[in-house]
């Protein structure tokens, strides 16, 4: 009986510190990487401004959330930010459409090389970053309200009688649910609608898509709109789960790129897979397994160290190492995307 409780406790530990955080972080990365992969598939460049697009959308959402809070509006147990999301998305769509009209369209019509697009996206990154910092400042912002937990560690312990607790935050639950719904909608759109098929065709073979009568400007416009929706939601969920800080969003660029490439860039399913691969690797490599082994091993073999493979500060290294490995072994990514 004792052995069984220990085993369950170890599982609860893993669930609490690896599975739940990995799933929610992975969903956030997946949504972000989807935006990167769509832009890559349709516009054919690596968008360095994507992290800041997320920051921009989240910022608008936060501002609207604060305003709603000041008006006394709330969603009860759910965060008010959900109500503010549509406005955030709207502004982000505007931002992306305006940047496309003023920046990228010119290069598209002049058939510029991808590197030029990339450098242009750095310029856009600077400008967006400047706007975000100017409006909301460079510091941490919290905007989470409503209920904090779906399951509290204390309640879980009381309920099960175990010594280890499982806690699931509302933000984590929301992230996972919203990600599933969003991804389902996206795939329905890409597989079943006329515009979605036009997008896939354009991504697959631009010339033939044009010969089939696909309107490139429309495809690009829809791509930016979807990117804006994904980026704003991903950014807001990340901000609710952790916190909002413009610089953190810039840094998210690396794991998101890694996710998109690892999965196979240009391939939406790959982006999702890549998001979870990167997230789980980060969480698993930086988790200290000491307690798990205390439960699993007999007392005499109790480990001394923390049994942590890498300190949490090296989580970027994890995404990078996976990225390099994939590039070396299989440059097209796990699910055969395009070669960059």
């Amino acid at each position: 009986m004792e052995a069984l409780t220990d085993l369950v406790s170890a599982l609860v530990l893993i669930l609490n510190f690896i599975v739940v955080p990995g799933l929610s972080y992975g969903s956030q990365l997946a949504l972000g990487a989807l935006g990167i992969t769509l832009v890559f598939g349709i516009l054919r460049f690596a968008n360095f401004a994507h992290g800041d697009t997320m920051a921009f959308g989240t910022m608008i959402t936060i501002l609207v959330t604060w305003w709603l809070q000041a008006q006394g509006v709330s969603l009860g147990p759910l965060p008010t930010a959900l109500l503010a999301l549509p406005i955030g998305i709207l502004f982000t769509v505007l931002l992306l459409v305006i940047t496309d009209k003023t920046v990228y369209r010119y290069y598209r019509h002049h058939k510029a090389v991808p590197v030029t697009f990339m450098i242009a996206s750095m310029g856009v990154m600077f400008m967006t970053n400047g706007i975000v910092r100017f409006v909301i400042g460079p510091n941490d912002q919290r905007f989470l309200d409503g209920e904090r937990f779906i399951v509290r560690a204390r309640d879980f312990k009381a309920m099960t009688g175990l010594s280890e607790g499982l806690s699931i935050k509302v933000s984590q639950g929301l992230t996972i649910v919203i990600a599933i719904v969003l991804v389902a909608l996206l795939f329905w759109f890409l597989q079943k609608t006329r515009t979605g098929k036009a997008m896939r065709a354009y991504s697959d073979n631009e010339d033939l898509a044009l010969l089939s009568g696909v309107d490139p400007d429309r495809v690009v416009l829809v791509t930016w709109i979807i990117t804006a929706i994904l980026a704003t939601i991903a950014g807001t969920l990340y901000g609710l789960d952790k916190s909002f800080k413009p610089f953190t969003y810039l840094q998210l660029l690396l794991p998101m790129f890694a996710a998109a490439i690892v999965g196979g860039i240009g391939n939406p399913i790959g982006a999702i897979l890549g998001g979870y691969v990167i997230a789980f690797s980060e969480v698993m490599v930086t988790y200290a397994y000491k307690k798990v082994f205390i439960y699993l091993l007999p007392q005499s073999l109790e480990p001394e160290g923390l049994l942590q493979l890498l300190s949490t500060d090296y989580k970027f290294a994890v995404s990078f190492v996976i990225l390099v490995l994939v590039l070396l072994v299989r440059p097209t990514g796990i699910l055969r995307g395009k070669v960059l």
Binding site: R194, K197, R200, D204, V214
Partner: peptide
């Protein structure tokens, strides 16, 4: 042809307009 699309989807794309 659109290599990442099914034969039927290729036909659909042909009838896009």
């Amino acid at each position: 042809v659109f290599t990442s699309m099914t034969v039927y989807e290729n036909l659909e794309m042909g009838a896009f307009l």
